[in-house]
Structures are given as structure tokens and as C-alpha cells.
């Protein structure tokens, strides 16, 4: 009997039976993976619910107005004679400005430090520096804040005065009132020092993954170390460094205590660019500053502030993860 030619109708179902251990492991992983998502969602919903009175009262103006006035603690819609009025814009903008200053200072330092550790320092020194950097990443932020207030601020005042004296023709270094303390510059400096360890650590990790064959290929073509780094290591690590910087940015934006100590908050005015001026905004610091004496309605306002900060940091992290995933994809191509 000759076997006949088979058609699609003869296709068999290919079954891979899952082992019990696979099933258990899978269940644990799915639980773990989805839990973090649901926790995030629950936080978001809770923030929306708690801030609902304020959002109903001010609408989008809560994010775009420039005022933080407690009054007698009740909104105008409840017949208050001295109505509370909340608009978060100077704080939200200030958060971004301070974080940006921190990035501008921290990222170049981190990249140079990471390159130094990976390619320039003798092995023993680089091991020691790596250890110190990783240790610095675990210093609590309140320590950074206190250290910033008592040690850094007096020095930073001098640096700020120098910047102002010689570079005040650049608008960002101009001031309207020469006090120089508790400026976005100082806050950014403290934050920069705080996030430098984590950005350095991630950059170092990505630089160390540069394929040896490419490094050797460059050296074999007569490259100096600097030329090799510029043409091989930096293009390879660019995406990872950006990702690490974005993680640092997320941390910088959410930081509370360190900034609270060293930044002068102005609720009703936005400091657009005068980074040496003793005036700034920061959502997290606002929450710390107002929480103790807040009435119920203002508390709703603070929850609203938390919601805005939540959205800002989530946005920064989304950008970071999309950049990181794009780099990973590129790497997969290069392995082929």
C-alpha cells in the first residue's frame, strides 16, 4: 500500500505538554509581573480619587495656574469668603528645571567617570572607584540634603556669584535680586551629586559590554585610546547612557528631602530660567512644605500635586525604557 500525498487536512496538532514545575513557575512570574502593574494602577486611581475635589474645582487650571493660596481652607464654590486657590504650574515647571540642571551637570561627569573606570584607571584603582561609586548610590537622600544645606550651599554661593559676575550676559546666569542662596542651581547641584553614582554605574556597565573584537579591530587600525573610545565605545554605549540618564532624571524629579532643604519655593511666580535666583519650584518639596498644616481641601490639592508628579516621572521613565529597548534591538542586529 503506497502512502498517499498528504494535504493540509492531514496536519496534526502539535502539543507540548507543560510540566507542573513550568506551570507553577509561570504562575509566579505572571503574578509578580502583573502585581507591579496593578499597584501602579491602584496608586494612580487613589491619587485621582483623593484629588477629585480640587480637580473638579479648578479643572486643568490646577496644572496651569500660578498660585498656592490656602485662604480659610474652603473653595469659592462652597461659599468661602476667603477662598483657597491652587495652581501648580511654578512647582511643576520648577521640578523639570531643577532636574534638567541636575542632568546637565551629572551626565557629562558620569560618562567621563565611567570611561575612566573602564579604560583609563589601573585595575586596582578602578575597582576601588567602582566600589565607592556603588556605595555613594546608597547614601540616603536626607544626608545629601543636609550636606547640601550646611556644606555645599556656602560654596555654591561663591560659585554662583562667580558665574553671575562674569557670565551674567547669558540670561540664565542673570539675577534680579543678588541673594544666590537656595536657587535652582544649588538644588540641581545637590541632585546632580545624588544621581551621578547611578548614572555612572549604568554607563560603566554598558561600556564594559563593548565587544572586544571591535575594540581590537580599532586598535589594530592604529587607533589611539581616545580615538577608539570616540569611534567605538561611545557609539555603542550611546543608547545605554541615555537610558541611564533618564533613570537618573526620574529619580531627580521625584526627590523630596534633598531639594526641600536647599530650594526657596515661590508658589505664585514661575522662575523660567534664572537658575541663580533664590526662587524656584518643586512639586515634591511643596508637598513636604504644606502637608503639616493642610486643611482637607488643601490636602486634596497636595494629592493633585502628587498626581502631576506621578505623571511627569512616569513620562520620563517611559521615554527611558523606549530608548533602552531601541538600543537592545540594535545590539541584537550587531550580534548576527
Amino acid at each position: 500500500m503506497n502512502p498517499r500525498v498528504l494535504t493540509q487536512a492531514d496536519q496534526i496538532a502539535i502539543v507540548t505538554r507543560r510540566r507542573l514545575s513550568d506551570k507553577v513557575f509561570r504562575a509566579i512570574l505572571i503574578f509578580g509581573g502583573t502585581t507591579s502593574f496593578f499597584v501602579l494602577l491602584a496608586i494612580f486611581l487613589y491619587l485621582v480619587q483623593r484629588s477629585a475635589p480640587v480637580l473638579r474645582e479648578f479643572g486643568l487650571g490646577f496644572a496651569t495656574n500660578s498660585i498656592w493660596y490656602s485662604g480659610d481652607g474652603f473653595p469659592a464654590s462652597q461659599g468661602s469668603s476667603d477662598p483657597a486657590n491652587f495652581g501648580l504650574f511654578p512647582m511643576a515647571y520648577g521640578t523639570l528645571l531643577v532636574a534638567l540642571i541636575a542632568m546637565v551637570i551629572a551626565v557629562p561627569i558620569s560618562v567621563m567617570l565611567a570611561l575612566g573606570i573602564s579604560y583609563y584607571m589601573p585595575k586596582r584603582v578602578s575597582a576601588a572607584v567602582t566600589f565607592i561609586v556603588d556605595l555613594a548610590a546608597s547614601i540616603p537622600s536626607v544626608v545629601f540634603g543636609l550636606w547640601g544645606l550646611f556644606i555645599l550651599v556656602p560654596h555654591a554661593r561663591y560659585w554662583a556669584q562667580l558665574l553671575n559676575r562674569y557670565l551674567d550676559w547669558i540670561p540664565i546666569f542673570d539675577v534680579t535680586f543678588p541673594s544666590f542662596d537656595q536657587s535652582p542651581f544649588v538644588a540641581g547641584l545637590v541632585l546632580a551629586l545624588m544621581i551621578t553614582p547611578i548614572v555612572t554605574s549604568i554607563s560603566r556597565e554598558i561600556f564594559s559590554q563593548t565587544p572586544l573584537e571591535l575594540i581590537q579591530g580599532a586598535y589594530a587600525l592604529g587607533a589611539t585610546r581616545a580615538a577608539m573610545i570616540r569611534n567605538i565605545v561611545l557609539p555603542f554605549g550611546r543608547g545605554g547612557v541615555v537610558g541611564g540618564a533618564m533613570l537618573g532624571l526620574g529619580r531627580a524629579m521625584g526627590e523630596t528631602v534633598a531639594v526641600f532643604f536647599v530650594l526657596q519655593l515661590f508658589y505664585d511666580q514661575t522662575n523660567w530660567f534664572r537658575i541663580l535666583e533664590s526662587q524656584g519650584g518643586n512639586v515634591a518639596s511643596l508637598i513636604v512644605a504644606r502637608y503639616g498644616e493642610a486643611t482637607e481641601f488643601e490636602l486634596a490639592g497636595l494629592f493633585g500635586a502628587g498626581l502631576v508628579l506621578f505623571i511627569l516621572t512616569l513620562g520620563a521613565n517611559l521615554v527611558a525604557s523606549s530608548i533602552i529597548s531601541r538600543t537592545t534591538k540594535k545590539k541584537r542586529v550587531s550580534k548576527k
Binding site: 565587544p211 573584537e213 571591535l214 581590537q216 579591530g217 587600525l221 592604529g222 587607533a223 567605538i232 542586529v333
Partner: peptide
């Protein structure tokens, strides 16, 4: 670097710069 310019090298695994 001058030596490596005068003495070129091709490696076991092709390593063009990606």
C-alpha cells in the same frame, strides 16, 4: 600606533564596525 598602521591585522571572526 605607527606599528599597527604598518602591520595590519585581520581577525578570526569578521569584525566590521556595526
Amino acid at each position: 600606533t605607527q606599528i599597527r598602521l604598518k602591520v595590519g591585522m585581520v581577525f578570526q571572526k569578521p569584525n566590521p564596525f556595526p
